[in-house]
């Protein structure tokens, strides 16, 4: 039987699509408020540094970054195909590599907090 890697690719896509649907708009509102000069308390340096310093928050943050980047990468790959860019292996390699690099970078930065 041929083994398919589709569930491996698609699972994080579905998880990320669901997670980003639930939390990304609210996250954007938080940083938009900061940009407009009404920074929520949590985004102050001391509060955020202490909050992100907790190991459980770090684990959750890495998971959020991973599924968000992965689902975006997967959707971008399909969109490239839809728009006529048929070099799927190249596109898939690039977009998934960016998603994994971004996740790794987030883990490294979190380790330094």
């Amino acid at each position: 039987m041929t083994r398919s890697n589709k569930p491996l690719v698609w699972g994080p896509f579905a998880a990320g699509g669901t997670l980003t649907a639930f939390v990304t708009p609210a996250l954007i509102v938080l940083t938009l408020l900061a940009g407009l000069g009404y920074a929520p308390e949590l985004l102050g340096y001391d509060r955020l540094h202490a909050f992100m310093g907790h190991w459980l928050v770090k684990v959750v943050a890495i998971a959020v970054v991973f599924v968000s980047l992965w689902s975006s990468a997967h959707r971008l790959r399909i969109t490239c195909y839809d728009l006529g860019l048929r070099a799927d292996l190249l596109v898939a390699t690039v977009v998934y590599a960016v998603a994994l690099t971004g996740t790794l970078a987030a883990a490294v930065f979190l380790a330094g907090i």
């Binding site: 954007i28 955020l48 992100m52 970054v65 975006s72 399909i78 971004g102 979190l110 330094g112």
Partner: peptide, 26 residues
């Protein structure tokens, strides 16, 4: 297509958050 293009903004925003984590660690 508009729905599919949302991935650029959600992915881009997530990378912005990663940049925020970088600055927080510095």
């Amino acid at each position: 297509m508009v729905r599919e293009f949302s991935c650029l903004f959600i992915g881009g925003y997530t990378l912005l958050l990663v940049a925020g984590l970088k600055s927080l660690s510095e």
